[in-house]
């Protein structure tokens, strides 16, 4: 059972205190978008072995959504950060690079 730290309230809590919300940094496609873009937005998800970006909600705590950068194989948590961004902050990218040099994920590296 994972331990995650909520970047809003600062609480390090058990996984049961949080709710997983799937992949982070999806770009929404609405009316006017192509079928391919909409399909990709709605259904296509990364399934990496290694670095991954996820959405979590501190559901039994402050109620805030946040993002976590995590390794899907070792379960190492590289960091958590605000959900109100379309790209991981540089400090998170640096933390990942320190542990997993050469990592890439979608358009991020």
């Amino acid at each position: 059972m994972l331990i995650l730290t909520c970047p809003y309230c600062g609480v390090s809590g058990e996984e049961t205190e949080f709710h997983a919300g799937g992949e982070a940094h999806l770009k929404r496609f609405g009316p006017g978008s192509s079928d391919a873009d909409f399909e990709s937005y709605l259904f296509h998800r990364e399934n990496p072995k290694g670095v991954h970006f996820e959405r979590w909600r501190h559901v039994s705590g402050c109620g805030k959504w946040f993002h976590a950068a995590r390794c899907t194989t070792t379960l190492e948590v590289f960091g958590t950060y605000t959900a109100q961004t379309s790209e991981p902050p540089q400090s998170i990218k640096d933390a990942i690079t320190a542990k997993r040099p050469g990592w890439t994920w979608r358009d991020f590296a």
């Binding site: 919300g21 929404r28 909600r57 559901v59 109620g63 959504w65 959900a83 109100q84």
Partner: peptide, 13 residues
């Protein structure tokens, strides 16, 4: 309620 919070916090913040 959670659905509203999710869209407010993660898309239309």
């Amino acid at each position: 309620f959670a659905h509203m919070e999710e869209w407010l916090q993660t898309e239309w913040w």
